[in-house]
Amino acid sequence: MKVAIAGAGAVGRSIARELLANSHEVTLLERKRAHIDEDAVVGATWLFADACELDNLEQAALETYDVMVAATGDDKANLVVSLLAKTEFAVNRVVARVNDPRNEWLFDEDWGVDVAVSTPRILASLVEEAVSVGDLVRLMTFRQGQANLVEMTLPDNTPLAGKPVRKLLLPRDAALVAILRGGRVIVPQSDDPVEGGDELVFIAPVEVEEALRTAIIEP
């Protein structure tokens, strides 16, 4: 996969390293020359360029990339990068960093964003996930499809204990994608049973979240 990352600060570099470790092709676009350090992310292509400028994106041949990551520390810049990537270069997937949670409502398909990642929201969700049993916790929003990644921890005395995945009466359009049990990550198969204390991870649209919670807590 070919990935362009706008912003080579700590966040952009960390993303680049992870992608390179998984054998993806990465290009970092950075407008501050002092931030360009090829030794910091070995294997990436570095471009001294402002990703908010259309000419620079054309020179980078952004239309040949599969993913654009807008990872600067400026929400305005990330929105501009996302919009240009989607509308001018038809990049298939655009992921944008949200620095200020108050701006999160802007990061949607109107600005070319497929997935908005808000670090404060993710941290808050993880705190909730750590202490919440029987509540549906939203971990991430996938803007383009209006679906959410949500998690629910089953009570120890759940009536679902021992029931196979195929017998869970989930609402339409909700999908169980993982079961976290102790130190294990289980990709659920139809015959796998659920147990008290399991963390169930779903993808579900907003409108069925309440029905999903009811189906799991009050089967």
Rank of each mutant, 00 (worst) to 15 (best):
V26M: 10
A44T: 03
A34F: 04
D50A: 09
H35V: 00
G43C: 14
A40K: 03
L29I: 06
N56Y: 06
A44N: 07
L29S: 00
C52E: 11
D55A: 12
V26E: 06
I36T: 03
R31D: 13
L47C: 05
L28P: 02
A49N: 08
H35T: 00
T27C: 07
E30D: 05
A49M: 09
D39F: 07
R33K: 13
A40L: 01
L29D: 00
T45I: 15
R33H: 10
E53A: 14
E38L: 08
I36Y: 02
A51L: 11
L54A: 07
R31N: 11
H24S: 12
D37T: 07
E25K: 12
K32N: 12
C52W: 01
V41K: 01
K32S: 07
L47I: 11
A44V: 04
T27R: 07
L47K: 15
V26C: 10
W46M: 04
V41E: 02
D37Y: 07
E38W: 09
L29K: 00
D39K: 13
E30M: 01
A51D: 10
A51Y: 05
W46Y: 13
I36V: 09
H35I: 00
V42W: 08
A34M: 06
H24C: 07
L29F: 03
D55S: 13
L29R: 00
A34W: 05
A51Q: 08
D37I: 03
N56V: 04
W46A: 01
D39M: 10
D50I: 02
V26T: 10
L54Q: 12
T45G: 06
F48S: 10
A44L: 05
F48R: 09
L47R: 15
H35E: 11
N56C: 10
E25G: 04
E25A: 13
L28T: 01
H35W: 06
A49C: 09
A40W: 01
I36W: 01
I36E: 02
D39H: 11
L28I: 05
R31Y: 05
E53N: 10
T27G: 02
E38K: 13
T27M: 13
E30K: 00
T45D: 12
D50V: 03
